[in-house]
Design a binder for these strands. Structure first.
Lengths: 232, 232
DNA sequence: GCAAAAGTGTTTGGATTACACCCATGC
DNA sequence: GCATGGGTGTAATCCAAACACTTTTGC
């Protein structure tokens, strides 16, 4: 089946890039690392690393995420794979993008050994990045928005207990639109949420009720009732 | 940024697999090749090949498609990338799946030099395939269905001039559901179609009108009117 | 005329929209 | 009391589902 010998291909490398989206104060940010080495020294980049010889792609993305955040139980979603022969000036590096969603307040960033400086940068304020990383980010962000429309991933970016207005604000930001409060609440009526008796505190207006996503009921609905999450 | 030397990674290979979906007689088929060499000699497989040193990923998928079908102007869509360290018994081969859509009657299959036997197999009748190719097929087929719901790719599988019932039949097959004829026609009213004066011939019932997809108007609607294709 | 599929109209109920209004809290 | 956002109700409208009905062809 393969008409070219394996040893003609020794110059390939394979990496995974981990786009970590963090939500805070109504804005989606990306965790960016500042490159300490050439090429693109001093430029901001998406955290990434070569895939180890016996490592699955997903595992390498998990490793990168862990080294930067210490988090282990985060869902990772595969995005696009980039393999332009000229995307890396030092050789042929094909890279597979993954993305993770989390709330910035839930943990401390820790610069990994290979990262000089690490910073959250709002999606819409990202500078020109190293390699083809602007391309990767744009493609991955599009996929995130697509997921937000058909899967309950927004709850990975919201606090464990959130208000309905916080949820609305996230969707308004992602879809760059304004929604009517009453209509938004009607629309999400079919999503299984747990209503807490607890309320917001120390706000200078009527305190809002807190909700959590009811994942158990959600899974049951998907399996038994052909339920499908939809937000447009 | 990279803490492992490049030369530790010389055993990697990278391939692309090209899932070619062909439509005929109300069924979606996949173009399968029979492996002439070990491993998995005699098993059916998704056509694929190693990526050439200076070749972009998409170009390698186009090359595979061309060698089997002689077609050059087919849209290819990237699907999932598979990189389990044990997926290829002879070494580490990471593969990126692409898929193409076409109508079987439009051309002749030609076995490429590396393909012993080539055959269309209906999606639901695929045997156990070589490597992790059943996994790749399932993942790619899911993505196809997702695309059918939000982009006008169905027209790549229908004849240039088609009847509305043919279009409905394709969606019924893909979504495994039955639709009401009147309601289907109301639903697709917003899709820009060119209505031909021409009619079906040699059918033993009332001949149906023929339509084509109006791609020019579609592109204009997307660009100017925020139009978005939707079929659920 | 009959079978088969094309093609259209109507009714109904549920969702979406726009908008108005009341409520609880801090200051 | 007032500013601020939380929270709800209603009427108009649009959309989708269900179903019935007419039309045109081959035999």
């Amino acid at each position: 089946m393969y008409k070219i010998n394996f040893d003609r291909f020794f110059t390939y490398s394979f990496s995974s890039d981990c786009v970590i989206f963090g939500y805070k104060d109504g804005q989606i940010n990306m965790l960016s690392v500042n490159r300490d080495v050439e090429p693109f020294k001093g430029k901001w980049a998406i955290p990434g690393d070569l895939v180890y010889p016996d490592e699955d792609l997903l595992d390498s993305a998990k490793r990168i995420l862990f080294e930067l955040t210490n988090l282990t139980d985060i869902d990772l979603h595969q995005a696009e794979t980039f393999g332009n022969p000229n995307r890396h000036p030092q050789g042929r590096v094909i890279t597979c993008a993954y993305f993770a969603l989390l709330r910035i307040d839930d943990f401390h960033i820790q610069a990994a050994s290979w990262a000089k400086e690490v910073k959250w940068i709002p999606i819409h304020e990202l500078p020109e990045m190293a390699f083809d990383h602007n391309l990767i980010l744009n493609s991955t962000y599009s996929l995130l928005k697509q997921k937000l429309a058909i899967e309950p991933v927004c709850f990975d970016m919201l606090p464990e207990k959130f208000t309905l207005s916080e949820m609305q604000r996230l969707y308004e930001y992602a879809f760059d639109t304004e929604m009517d409060k009453a209509n938004f609440r009607k629309k999400i009526k079919s999503i299984p949420l747990i209503s807490h008796s607890e309320k917001q505190k120390n706000v200078k207006h009527r305190p809002a009720s807190l909700f959590s996503f009811d994942e158990i009921t959600y899974e049951k609905l998907v399996a038994e009732n052909h339920y499908s999450f939809k937000m447009y």
